[in-house]
Amino acid sequence: MAGPEPGGAPGPRGGRRVRFRLPPTAIPAPSGRDEERLFYRRLEALVATGPGGFEPLFAADDGWRDLTEDRLLRKLVVQEGAGGPRPRPGQEVSVKVLGALEDGALVERDPRLSFVPGHGDAVQALELGVPTMRPGEVAFFLAAFPYGYGRPGREPDVPPEAPLLWEVTLLEVRDPAPQPPPAARLRLAGQRRERGNFHFARGDFAAALRSYRLAISALDGADDARARPAAAPEDEELREQRVKCLNNCAAAALKLDREDEALAACDAALRISPDNGRALLRRGQLLARRGRDAEAAVDLRRALQLDPASKVIHAELSRLVKRRSAPQEPSPGCAARRP
């Protein structure tokens, strides 16, 4: 549908009217509330057959098909697509999403969620379900908690081990641009970093690290702008986001005991932002672990200059100073040579 003309008047009940020059006709555009009402009508039709919430739907055969062998992720086509191929690996999709709990509480509402299936940018129900759709298709995806928000749920609105029902409309399938504009790169990187934070909070550090790496790949070229004398504001934001993602990579790598990878991420962050306090602290801690005390002290002192009130940095420096000032135990060979 064409976009509204400048100065379009508000429609009834807070909606919008789309005005066309010829003929002079006003057509009310569907509002979010209209979409929600339609969703709930469809939802009521599904669960009206009996009590038990979504449980009967996991065993229903009327139009439902299983997307996984465990029958914990199922699909029901609500409206066939207008045509066109299904998404191929590596392509980006945009979907409209509404999602509800068994009690009918609406916990998902995104008019245009964009992601690349298989990159861990969305919940598994969407990662696995959307590639089965065609453009224009509307489908329900019923997911037990392993394909939704996991055993912990999602505070504050998704309880632990909650099944969810999503209504998904596949709006667009497109090949990734060879070098998207900065705004698109920032959007995608932010989405992936948030997904990494989601995994990190649940203790899935491998998945978190994967999401952070994908966020960095979306920001490729961010530090190339550092060499330009008059960088655009977007370049600075790209660099800042890259440093955040590198710091997150280091944190996840440490949780996985991958010290080399964590140290490399800190080095990369400090090449972009030499006075980044978090990277200085973490690199100082890593260098101290490896017995490179002089280098660790340089990083920790600089971190303390940037954040003099930090108790963590004070404790790390104090520990390092005590260790360096402690008398060294003589080796057995030296003791044997004493007169």
Results as ranks from 00 to 15, higher is better:
P156E: 07
G153P: 05
P181H: 00
G148A: 15
T169L: 14
R154M: 02
P159K: 02
P181L: 07
A162R: 05
E172N: 12
T169E: 15
P176K: 12
Q179R: 15
P146S: 10
E155R: 09
E161S: 10
A183D: 11
G148M: 06
P152D: 12
V158H: 01
G148N: 10
R185E: 10
D175P: 04
A162D: 00
R154L: 08
P178V: 07
P176A: 07
A177F: 01
R174N: 07
P156M: 08
P182G: 00
E155K: 04
P176D: 11
A162N: 07
L164E: 05
R151T: 07
P152S: 14
Q179W: 14
P146M: 08
L165E: 12
Y149A: 04
V168W: 13
E155V: 06
V158E: 01
V158W: 06
G150C: 10
L164H: 02
W166V: 08
P156K: 05
V173R: 07
A162E: 10
D175R: 14
A183S: 13
A162W: 01
V173G: 10
A184E: 14
W166S: 09
P182R: 03
P163S: 11
L171W: 01
T169W: 12
T169C: 07
V158M: 02
D175E: 15
Y147N: 04
E167H: 10
V158A: 05
P178F: 04
G148S: 14
L165I: 14
Q179V: 14
Y147W: 06
D157Q: 03
P160C: 13
P163V: 04
G150E: 08
P159G: 09
P152N: 09
R185N: 10
D175W: 06
P163T: 04
W166D: 06
P146R: 05
E172T: 02
G148K: 03
P176C: 13
G150H: 00
L164I: 10
E155W: 12
Y149T: 05
G153D: 03
R154E: 00
A177C: 01
E172Q: 13
E161F: 03
L170R: 09
R151D: 13
E161M: 10
P160L: 13
R151V: 13
D157G: 02
V168T: 13
A184Q: 14
P176F: 11
P156Q: 04
Y147A: 05
E172F: 07
P181V: 02
A177G: 06
E172R: 15
E167P: 00
A177P: 05
G148C: 12
E161R: 14
G150Q: 03
L164C: 08
L170P: 02
E167F: 01
P152T: 13
L171E: 15
D157C: 01
P152F: 11
P160K: 13
P176N: 11
V168M: 12
P181C: 00
P152L: 15
V173I: 11
P178D: 03
L165F: 11
W166K: 07
V173M: 05
R174M: 06
P178R: 01
D157S: 03
L164M: 15
E161G: 07
E167T: 01
A183Y: 04
P178Q: 05
Q179N: 15
V168H: 12
A183E: 15
T169G: 08
P163F: 02
R151N: 09
V158I: 15
W166N: 01
P160D: 14
L164Y: 01
E161C: 08
G150M: 00
G153K: 02
Y149M: 06
E161I: 08
